[in-house]
Nucleic acid binder design. Sequence first.
DNA 1: AGACGAAATGGGGTCCCACCCCGTTTACTG
DNA 2: CAGTAAACGGGGTGGGACCCCATTTCGTCT
Lengths: 192, 192
Amino acid sequence: MEREVAPVAGHDARPQRSDWQRNHEQLVAVAATLIDRDGAQVSLEKIAREAGVGSATLHRHFPSRRALLEEVFRAVVERFRLRADELAADDPRTGLVTWLEELTLSAADSRGLTAALEAAADGEPPAADSCHGMVREATVMLLDRARAVGAVRPEVSPDDLLALGTAVSLATEGDPAAARRLLRLAIDGVRP
Amino acid sequence: MEREVAPVAGHDARPQRSDWQRNHEQLVAVAATLIDRDGAQVSLEKIAREAGVGSATLHRHFPSRRALLEEVFRAVVERFRLRADELAADDPRTGLVTWLEELTLSAADSRGLTAALEAAADGEPPAADSCHGMVREATVMLLDRARAVGAVRPEVSPDDLLALGTAVSLATEGDPAAARRLLRLAIDGVRP
DNA sequence: AGACGAAATGGGGTCCCACCCCGTTTACTG
DNA sequence: CAGTAAACGGGGTGGGACCCCATTTCGTCT
């Protein structure tokens, strides 16, 4: 799964040097480990040190913390995309709710996924290959289905749902039970 | 309103020296200004510098950033407490909703209030004189009234509502329109 | 008024971090 | 097997949190 790494060239150009790829993978792997152990605000210096590269190299590979998070969580997000396809076979209503819940719980406990998904805040056109972009597409798909059977209010947008998930996971980081409770509350509404 | 400052002694002891009080007030005032201008993560050094005291003094007065935020927002929170009393005269349902909305909007745009209210996360027994404690009490009161007339689901707790407000304001900092939209969504629920 | 002791201060120190410069090393290419 | 562009990394800069301790200031007691 990691042996074969596509060149990922900007749009053509020549592929990166082998040491570049090695360091890149090493950095992502170490970052994943440390984020899991120490949270998403581990110092970048520490990641570089642990990966055995200079801090300059890390900064050259990832211009911002978020760029690194994006790569670290790409695999997770990819699995979510597949999960969305599974859920599309379910009842549209429970499919959407399950999707939102799994997404939110995952974000609330792997501190950092939330940040990776939050890219929207930077006003970028949600690139289809970014974490945010991928999740957004899946949400659009599931929401459309739920809407078609009248399972959600018509004025609810995909971005509303994502914002809701983000909000809940931000507020309940590290407490899955609270995350689940809060999300259900928001889905059901405060009023009876 | 600031001339007369109560000693605020721990429980007895002698009152603080005048220079202590002067610096304390100065620090809170400067912090309020800078937080308003630069957001709640202004460097504490900057606040100390601007206030004309050494950074050691700031740290002696406020052992943590949150301790400083607590004092900065105490006045705001006090006004909210009064507002709660006004809203208690309203229809219980709209009273509660208005309360939550005003609280959330305020938190979402004065970056920092949210953090001051978040004290709950530290598992402290919510002291009645902390920002969190005061707001919580008001919420309990308004929620009880709304519950009495069946305007909210019985399983919704005051802490649920506060968590909801916190979540929304965290996720929509600096964007009041988004905060309002998201909160309304959560109150009404995703389903029709 | 004057002096004494406790309270409070702040300059400077330590440690850590993000980010960058530039001389050196390394991998590919012909 | 050279030549060259790509990539590297040690070390520098600037800043922030938090702390130590010699010094100043305040309040009090005579």
